[in-house]
Each structure stands twice: as structure tokens, then as C-alpha cells.
Simulated scan of single mutants.
Amino acid sequence: MSISPEELELLNSKLGLRSLFASKNIDLEKTLREIKYELRLRELQAELVKLQAWAIENRKKIVILFEGRDAAGKGGAIRRITAHINPRYFRIVALNKPTEDEQGQWYFQRYVNKLPKPGKIVFFDRSWYNRAVVEPAHGFCTEEEYKIFMSQVNDFEKMIMESNTYLIKFYFSITKEEQGKRFDDIQKSNLKRWKMTPMDERARELWDVYTGYKEVMLKDTNSDHAPWVIIEANKKTEARIAAIEHILKTIPYNK
């Protein structure tokens, strides 16, 4: 492949040399992609620090939802977004199965309890939208509970936004083939095997069921005040960059 002077300079940088020597088989094209991704990521992460400082100073509340199938890359995106911002002013929420008391509450109550205070950001690694896809697909809620949720969620989100809160809803979209590949990679890795659960295995079998509920969710809860942002996530690096760029574009912080 031909290399431009700018690309040669990238390869000779500290980051470039580290990337080159980290691989047994040198692939210049792949290495350049990785360098450009890392440089762009660092640039965007610096902007996220500015955004958080603005939110703290102006007592803004920010809620960002990450939805998508298992292994879609939601957690990896959240880790890159939060890598350099102040941990005292953000929280990652990934709720477990509701307790017996929570099962008797209004469905949204336990999510209300996790919403941010002024100056804080909350990232939901899966959110109240569990009831729109995961729960009905696995039979964890009744048809009536599902219908009630779908009839209330748009108004619930409108109330959140009317309380001086920014709300961003991401859906990370991957193909069935890519999900299968990622599951296989997880199962082969001694370091990642713990991530695989019986529910993940079941999700593979329920792909088409998930798809049906997902399509209804994206159509019926894509409101004017809280639209869905679809992130094409087959390539993790591109998905992370796209998500951060959207956050920075949507929230009017001081640039």
C-alpha cells in the first residue's frame, strides 16, 4: 500500500510505533486505522471532560441510555465515554432483577430512584426498555404489563426532560452473524467467559422474537422529544466514535 507523508508521520509517532511493535504480523493498513481511532477517541474524550465541567457548573442533569442486543458493545462504549471524566459526577446503572418489593412498585420507580441530581450524568447500561424487549421476549412480564409500559413510557420520558434533564437514547445495532461471532469469541476466552450467561444463549435462540419487539419499540417510542439514535455497531470502534460524537453534538456545552 502507498503511504502519505501524514500517515508516515503517524506511524513514526509514539502511538504508531507502539501499535506496530505490539503486533506479531505487521499490517500497516490496520495499524493506521487503530492509530487514527485512538487519536480521534482522545480528542473526543477531551471534549467530554469539557462537557462534564459545563454540566457541573450549570447544574445540568444528563441521562444516556444504551440499549441493544447482548454483545452489541454497549459496555465498551460506556467505558470509553467515562474513561477520563470525573467519577464523582457520573454513575453507571445496570440494574439486576427487581426485588420482591420492586415488583410491587410502579415499574418506573426503581429507575426514577437512579436519575441524576443536578450536575451529574447517569449512563444506563440497559434501562426501563428491558420491558419493551427483553422481558416480553423471555416471558418475564405479562402482556398487560408490556402494554401498560408501552402506553406510559413516552410520557415518562417527557416528564424527565421537562425536569431540566437531557435524555439521549442509543440503540446499538448488530447483525445476527456478528453477535454469533462475538459470543464465540467470549466463550473461547478464559478472561471473558464469565460474561456469557444462560440468558445470552437463550437470546441467540430468540433472535427473531427479539427483532419483533425491537421493531415495535423503535417505532412506537421514537418520540419527537426523545428520539432513538441508531448506532451501527458491527465495528466497535466506529460505534464508539459515533456515540460520543452524537453526545457532543446534542448537548450544548461550552466548546
Rank of each mutant, 00 (worst) to 15 (best):
S2Y: 15
S2N: 15
S2V: 15
S4E: 04
S4Q: 00
P5M: 12
E6P: 05
L10A: 00
S13K: 01
L15E: 12
L15I: 13
L17C: 12
R18N: 03
L28F: 00
E29D: 07
K30A: 09
K30H: 03
L32G: 04
E34W: 02
I35D: 01
Y37S: 03
Y37G: 00
L39H: 00
R40M: 03
R40I: 02
L44S: 13
Q45C: 12
Q45A: 14
A46P: 11
E47D: 15
E47K: 15
V49F: 04
K50I: 14
Q52G: 15
A53I: 04
I56R: 05
K61H: 05
K61P: 01
I64F: 04
I64T: 09
L65G: 05
F66M: 02
D70E: 10
A71V: 10
G75F: 04
I78Y: 10
R80Y: 08
I81W: 14
I81A: 05
A83R: 10
R88K: 11
Y89W: 08
R91E: 14
N96V: 08
K97D: 07
T99R: 06
E100N: 12
D101V: 07
G104R: 14
G104C: 03
Q105E: 13
Y107I: 05
Y111C: 02
Y111D: 10
V112Y: 05
V112G: 02
N113V: 10
L115Q: 06
K117T: 11
G119N: 04
V122K: 06
F123Q: 00
S127D: 05
A132S: 14
V134G: 13
E135R: 07
P136R: 11
P136Q: 01
H138T: 09
G139D: 14
F140A: 14
F140Y: 15
T142S: 12
E144P: 06
E144V: 09
Y146I: 02
S151Q: 05
Q152I: 03
M159Q: 08
N164I: 03
T165Y: 13
Y166L: 00
I168P: 10
K169N: 09
T175Y: 06
T175V: 00
K176P: 06
E177F: 13
E177N: 11
Q179S: 06
Q179T: 08
G180E: 09
G180C: 08
K181T: 11
F183T: 09
D185V: 04
K192G: 14
R193D: 00
K195T: 11
M196C: 04
P198V: 03
M199K: 13
D200W: 01
E201F: 08
E201V: 07
A203W: 09
L206E: 07
W207F: 04
D208M: 00
Y210C: 05
G212A: 08
Y213D: 05
Y213Q: 07
K214I: 10
E215F: 06
E215R: 02
E215G: 03
L218C: 09
K219Y: 12
D220E: 15
H225Q: 08
A226Q: 02
P227W: 11
P227V: 06
W228Y: 08
E232K: 13
A233E: 06
N234K: 08
K236I: 01
E238P: 04
R240A: 14
I241C: 13
A242F: 14
A242L: 01
A243F: 04
A243P: 13
H246M: 07
H246R: 15
I247M: 14
Y253M: 11
